[in-house]
């Protein structure tokens, strides 16, 4: 397969950056997208050029590190996968592929396609936990039965990998899907309900402070989410916030 890559190059946070075109050849359908990026970088290094920086780690769709905006969509045209799980068979010979970093004020570019997603960590640090110390003396795991339905819903919310595709896809660069997934998971479980009020207020406040946009319910986040986190979670967070807003002291 012969392809034309149009890749965002930016040497550092203060560089203006631009799209640079790279032709690439001998790409096979069973290569992953990142295998293809490796091939490009090998070529660039041998030619004495600067390889393209991009984030990646587990390459099996779970760590959430890879983060490319491919042909106008977060993680590319396929659904329910991350960039590292995208395979070149999804593209056709001669195609032009745009590769850009996640774009959001809250995700400043570090280099090329690498962005700083620390904002998501800071949201988590503001409330994405149950305040329980490690002791070995908590109640027995089976002491509090949890309905399978709630447990499954909590699990589905908890599968968020924190990649930021929701932010990247959202026309407003909103992080509502990410934040609501954690709020939802913990709001559904008895262990998390105790701190539910403070959690949702704090996490939303941090989310706002980090400069994410506001949710306009376009639903783009859920479509592009590699883990198919549902909009149900945003609705649940909206309910949680409403309750919290009216009852917090």
């Amino acid at each position: 397969m012969k392809l034309t890559l149009k890749i965002w190059r930016q040497s550092g946070p203060n560089d203006k950056g631009q799209i640079v075109t790279y032709p690439i050849d001998n790409i096979e359908g069973d290569m992953s997208f990142l295998d293809m990026m490796d091939v490009l970088n090998e070529e660039l290094i041998v030619k004495g050029e600067d390889p393209v920086a991009f984030d990646h780690d587990c390459r099996e769709g779970i760590c959430g590190m890879c983060s490319l905006f491919i042909n106008g969509e977060a993680h590319g045209p396929d659904r329910a996968i991350t960039t590292c799980q995208l395979h070149m068979r999804k593209f056709s010979d001669g195609e032009t592929i745009y590769i850009e970093p996640w774009r959001a004020k809250a995700f400043p570019v570090i280099k090329d396609l690498v962005v700083d997603r620390g904002a998501l960590d800071r949201v988590m640090a503001s409330g994405g936990f149950v305040s329980v110390n490690t002791s070995g003396n908590t109640v027995d795991a089976n002491a509090i039965p949890i309905s399978k339905i709630d447990a499954d819903k909590a699990f589905e919310a908890a599968t968020c990998i924190g990649c930021g595709a929701c932010v990247a896809s959202c026309v407003n660069a909103s992080a509502m899907l990410f934040v609501s997934a954690k709020v939802s998971q913990l709001a559904l479980l008895p262990q998390g309900k105790i701190e539910a009020t403070e959690r949702v207020l704090n996490m939303v406040r941090t989310m706002d402070e980090e400069g994410f946009g506001n949710c306009t319910n376009t639903g783009a986040c859920a479509v592009e989410c590699p883990k198919e986190i549902s909009l149900d979670n945003i609705a649940r967070m909206n309910r949680e916030y409403f309750k919290a807003m009216l009852t917090s002291e």
């Binding site: 149009k6 965002w8 799209i19 905006f69 042909n71 106008g72 969509e73 045209p77 745009y98 850009e100 774009r103 959001a104 004020k105 809250a106 896809s169 026309v171 407003n172 660069a173 909103s174 400069g211 994410f212 946009g213 506001n214 306009t216 319910n217 376009t218 639903g219 783009a220 479509v223 592009e224």
Partner: peptide, 26 residues
């Protein structure tokens, strides 16, 4: 605020693949 949340736009954005144009143009 939303405009400010994405200061640099995408060169290529296929938003039609994931949302209705009405929802994006409210």
């Amino acid at each position: 605020q939303n405009k400010k949340a994405r200061p640099v736009q995408y060169a290529m954005n296929k938003a039609s693949a994931n949302s209705s144009s009405a929802s994006r143009q409210m």
